[in-house]
C-alpha cells in the first residue's frame, strides 16, 4: 500500500510561486498573453546536461519503482511498470541517447509522458524544475548536437545563464521499443 503512496514525488515543486512572480513583474500583460509567449517546460538532467520536455506532454513524475524486464526489446527499454493499473514501459534515456548507463540513484526520476496513444516513462538522472521559456528565444537545433540524438531534438531554449535542449517527443515515442 505504502509503495503506491510513494509513487508521487513530493520533492518536485511545481513552480507556482515563479509563475506568480513573472505575472507580477509583467503586470501590464494579461495572463493570456503570458501563456502565448512562453512555453512551460519540465527541465531534467541527463549526463550533466539540461534537457526539457513540454509540460503538456508530461502526465506525472514518479520515483523509480520496481519494473519488470521485457525480453526481446531494445536495450534502452528497462521494462514495464504498473502505474495505477496501467502498464507503462520505461525507457532509460541515457542508454537511448548513447550517454552510457548509470545506475539508478537517489535522484533518478521517471517522467511519464502521455501523448497521442502513447504512455511511456523516461528514466532521467534528475529533475530540475519547470522553466518558462520565451518562445522567441527558442532556436533551431545547432549543428554541434551529436548525430545520435539530433533527430530527437526540437530546438534549443536560451535561459538567463544556461541553455536547454528541447526534446521532440513525437519522434522519441513513435520509434517504439520493440525489436524490428
Amino acid at each position: 500500500m505504502n509503495k503506491t503512496d510513494d509513487l508521487f514525488d513530493k520533492s518536485l515543486v511545481i513552480a507556482e510561486d515563479q509563475e506568480e512572480k513573472m505575472a507580477k513583474s509583467q503586470k501590464k500583460n494579461d495572463a493570456l498573453i503570458l501563456k502565448d509567449e512562453y512555453d512551460q517546460v519540465v527541465g531534467f538532467i541527463l549526463r550533466e546536461e539540461l534537457f526539457g520536455v513540454d509540460i503538456l506532454h508530461v502526465e506525472e513524475i514518479i520515483k523509480p519503482v520496481d519494473f519488470t524486464h521485457v525480453p526481446n526489446t531494445k536495450e534502452f527499454v528497462l521494462g514495464v511498470i504498473n502505474l495505477r493499473g496501467k502498464i507503462i514501459p520505461i525507457v532509460d534515456l541515457r542508454v537511448k541517447f548513447g550517454f552510457g548507463k548509470k545506475p539508478i540513484g537517489p535522484n533518478s526520476r521517471i517522467i511519464v509522458i502521455s501523448m497521442n496513444d502513447f504512455n511511456v516513462g523516461f528514466m532521467v538522472d534528475k529533475i530540475e524544475k519547470v522553466y518558462y521559456i520565451e518562445k522567441k528565444s527558442i532556436e533551431p537545433t545547432p549543428s554541434n548536437i551529436p548525430q545520435t540524438i539530433e533527430k530527437y531534438v526540437k530546438g534549443v531554449g536560451k535561459l538567463q545563464n544556461k541553455i536547454m535542449t528541447l526534446l521532440n517527443m513525437k519522434e522519441l515515442l513513435e520509434e517504439g521499443g520493440g525489436l524490428n
Partner: peptide, 16 residues
C-alpha cells in the same frame, strides 16, 4: 493487458 503502443509485437510476449 496490452503493453501499449510503444511496445508492439514483442516476440514471445502477448501481454502483461
Amino acid at each position: 493487458k496490452s503493453l501499449g503502443h510503444y511496445l508492439t509485437n514483442i516476440q514471445s510476449i502477448s501481454g502483461a
